[in-house]
Design a protein around this nucleic acid. Sequence first.
DNA 1: TTGACGCCCATATGGTCCCATGGTATCCCA
DNA 2: TGGGATACCATGGGACCATATGGGCGTCAA
Lengths: 146, 146
Amino acid sequence: MNRFLSHATNRIDAKGRVSVPSPFRAVLAALDIRELYCFQDFLYPAISAGGPELLERFEKQIAEADPFSPEANEMSLLIHGGGVFMKLDAEGRLTVTDFIRDFTGITDEVTFVGRADHFQLWSPTAFIETQEAARCARRLRGLAAP
Amino acid sequence: MNRFLSHATNRIDAKGRVSVPSPFRAVLAALDIRELYCFQDFLYPAISAGGPELLERFEKQIAEADPFSPEANEMSLLIHGGGVFMKLDAEGRLTVTDFIRDFTGITDEVTFVGRADHFQLWSPTAFIETQEAARCARRLRGLAAP
DNA sequence: TTGACGCCCATATGGTCCCATGGTATCCCA
DNA sequence: TGGGATACCATGGGACCATATGGGCGTCAA
């Protein structure tokens, strides 16, 4: 099962570091991902993180469009200007930079959320609220759980 | 990963200088770029900066079109009239000239934004607004995160 | 002369590397 | 089955180093 599943909340220490949950690190190791491509999610106030092939997939999308089109420019602004490579330290932690804080509203705790081929960093409160809102929307549309 | 990624905001000092973020300087060194070609971006209120081959690429584009066409004329007006070469000082800083200030609205802080093969100088507020607008446009077009 | 720009050095902050600790779940053996 | 030992994991902190930033001169040109 080499995919990111479940969610967990960890504390940020005085130096601004937070441990990536061990199950996620196991998936990273299994997929041989040594450097994380992190970008500001297009939809939610969350940072999405995955392997470098995530970025390559985006860049392919740009290359297929006209490179000088406003759409391509817009896309690059998001995935290049809004993305960064990060590395975990020896203990499997990553530092929560202003790049992450400003976009997510994270202050002293991080909720890690599995999303199959990538995972996300959320502010704990924002995650609960957004998840609840998503459940509501689904109910309203009459889509019950299986 | 020799491309410009992420964004960071640095302060302009009393002499009008600002430090180029260290990751960007590392990319410049890796690509052996010693002189920066800076030009006013075609789309956004930002200054784009990259190696001299950026200018050469533009000039090639002009050469391929009819040199006397209105398009070629217009292009030259932008990339030659709106471009300039700049150098970093020993500490990796560049001076924010009126050329940059007038076009971008930068006053006391600069947001550096990576764009893969070049990077940009933005007014911090303008960058946040434009990026947010780009995300909105993407949502409206119905393109969700991966 | 004065202001802009080059080159030099100083410094505090913040990030990185390394090692330590406490708590918890798991395992093993009596 | 119970209790101790053990391995793993989240967390804490110290030392060191890179970086952003501030400022002093000297030079050159307006």
